[in-house]
Amino acid sequence: MNRLLQIELVKLKYYPTFWILTGIAFGFYVLILYAATQINFDIKGIDLHVYFRFPVVWQSIAYYSSWFNLLLALLIIILTGNDFVFRTIRQHVIDGLNKQEIFISKLQMVFLFAVVAFAVNFFSGFFVGSIFTDGYSQVFNDIYFVALYFINVLGIMSIALLISVLLKNIAASIVVFIGMYIFELILRGYFALMSLNFGQFLPFKVFSNLCSAPSLKKMISDPVIKQSIEQSMQTASAWEMPLGINVSLSIFYIAGFFYLSYYLLQKRDL
């Protein structure tokens, strides 16, 4: 196994906080998903279970999984912050790692988390979809939402990594991360009031667009109601970023945040 990843895994493997947070999050993930699948309204023309069938389930699960991004961001902040708080990042350089290797080890940790989150997302979607769908003819339709979720989670963790490298302090990083999210919400609200589309280009929004909630109209099976809702939504809908631009912009942001983290590590004393 890669030496740098092995170093990160030793830190993770024996870290109680990591297992407690992950355990709680995974427990809630399964519990909420199970509870959601048990809900059904007996109203004519509305079918809630459509969200758990292929192909819609991929988007539903990607949206649902993105709720847990905060936890992944927290883990990145805590694990990176630990290295600054315990000054072990400094010790690693003294012991022989260079700053580039330290950055790569953090990057590998971020990708590892993203891959695990991706796998959980994929298997949850496949499992739930298999239960609620008769047959697998549509199983691969819309499966790209799993890939979009991967980019989404990578994006959120790239912000977390940058903040923790910038501030070198766990508590401050958590406050700033949540503060940035709230600030962006306010800014988006302001732009929306001014009828400007700038808010769509802000990083949290760009990432969250990748895992947007599936449309409510999907649960409506009555064609007449569906058409009338579609008409009303067409007149009210705001500008939406095309998916290609959204993905490109996300990758641009992720690359930018990773580069800034690398730059800060290289340029600053430890």
Partner: peptide
């Protein structure tokens, strides 16, 4: 500078790596 939650052996495993 070591990880307080790790044992001596585990801390030195990181250095050994």
């Amino acid at each position: 500078n070591f990880y307080p939650y790790l044992s001596l052996q585990q801390n030195l495993e990181i250095t050994a790596l």
